[in-house]
């Protein structure tokens, strides 16, 4: 019940910027999900610094949440370099060199984490692509790659934290957008929980993110992690994943969820519908490809 998009710029020659590109692509498929919109954006950060984003809610709650966060920062030796409140969210950059998983589980208890990473920042909220941009200035992002998601919600009040992209709780810089449904969710989740991982939501997309991050943490390349995800996950899915240097996709064997891609020397763009890709190149017929069922692939940026 959603639309997804992703882009990776291979070099600086495309004349396209990630922020505006993702806004356009998502606006092009907003019909697939009018309730909320989100972006996972990558801009290289400083060595040893972490960017954190939280949902802290409105004024009163926000004060409390930020206070408890600062306490956790203190306890874990994270020093604040920059901080900012935007709408119901709180963005902070800290200097941190400890155990990231421990740190992120600890901050999770203080406030709702949206993303943690050296270069990843996730921005998501209710409304359309342009609404979210109006609040968070997504169009200013100039990074190398990013993902986006539009969502139709069935819960009663559309909560920003239930929207995508999802961050792989406990792992820096891994984000996912997903269209579909993982039907062996609880089985997979219990398997991961037994190994000590915690989940911030009951959303199957978070599960995919944690699953992949865990594999990569064991030294398995993203590509191979995607391959095994197709074997391990049941259901219908088309998802995009991003790390600090790569993006990739995987598609289920039933091919029930759409996905289409366009690649040239300068960029790779993937979306639920070609209409999103065409937004990047108005008036041009593109040489696109639909990935076959049960396939996966990755692309890395040149570093």
């Amino acid at each position: 019940m959603c639309g997804i998009a992703g882009i990776l710029l291979k070099n600086g020659d495309s004349g396209i910027d990630t922020g505006p590109a993702l806004i356009d692509m998502l606006d092009g498929c907003q019909h697939r999900g009018p309730d909320s919109t989100g972006f996972a954006l990558y801009e290289s950060g400083e060595e040893g610094q972490l960017k954190l984003r939280f949902h802290v809610g409105s004024d009163n709650e926000a004060g409390g949440a930020i206070a408890s966060l600062k306490q956790v920062f203190d306890e874990h030796g994270a020093r604040i370099i920059e901080e900012e409140r935007i709408a119901g969210s709180y963005r902070v950059v800290v200097r941190f060199r400890g155990d990231l998983q421990k740190f992120s589980y600890a901050v999770e208890h203080a406030a709702k984490v949206v993303s943690i990473g050296e270069s990843l920042e996730i921005v998501k909220d209710v409304g359309g692509a342009h609404d979210v941009d109006d609040t968070y200035d997504v169009h200013l992002f100039r990074g190398s790659h990013g993902l986006g998601h539009v969502r139709l919600a069935t819960e009663s009040d559309v909560k920003p934290e239930a929207s995508h992209p999802f961050w792989a709780t406990g792992f820096a810089d891994v984000a996912i957008v997903h269209n579909g449904q993982i039907t062996n969710y609880w089985k997979m989740r219990r398997r991961l929980e037994r190994r000590g991982f915690a989940f911030a939501t009951d959303n199957d997309s978070e599960l995919i993110a944690v699953y992949l991050a865990d594999k990569m943490n064991q030294g398995i390349p993203l590509k191979d992690s995607l391959a095994s995800s197709i074997d391990d996950m049941d259901g219908t899915f088309s998802f995009l994943v991003s790390t600090r240097d790569e993006i990739g996709y995987a598609k289920d064997r039933l091919a029930a969820k759409p996905m289409i891609m366009f690649e040239n020397d300068d960029l790779i763009a993937i979306a639920s519908e070609e209409v999103s890709l065409n937004r990047l190149f108005p008036g041009r017929a593109l040489d696109t490809r639909e990935p076959p069922p049960g396939s996966y692939r990755t692309w890395s940026r040149s570093i």
Binding site: M1, C2, L152, N179
Partner: peptide, 8 residues
């Protein structure tokens, strides 16, 4: 196959 296709 889902609400997203249905709307189209």
């Amino acid at each position: 196959l889902g609400a997203d296709d249905l709307v189209i």
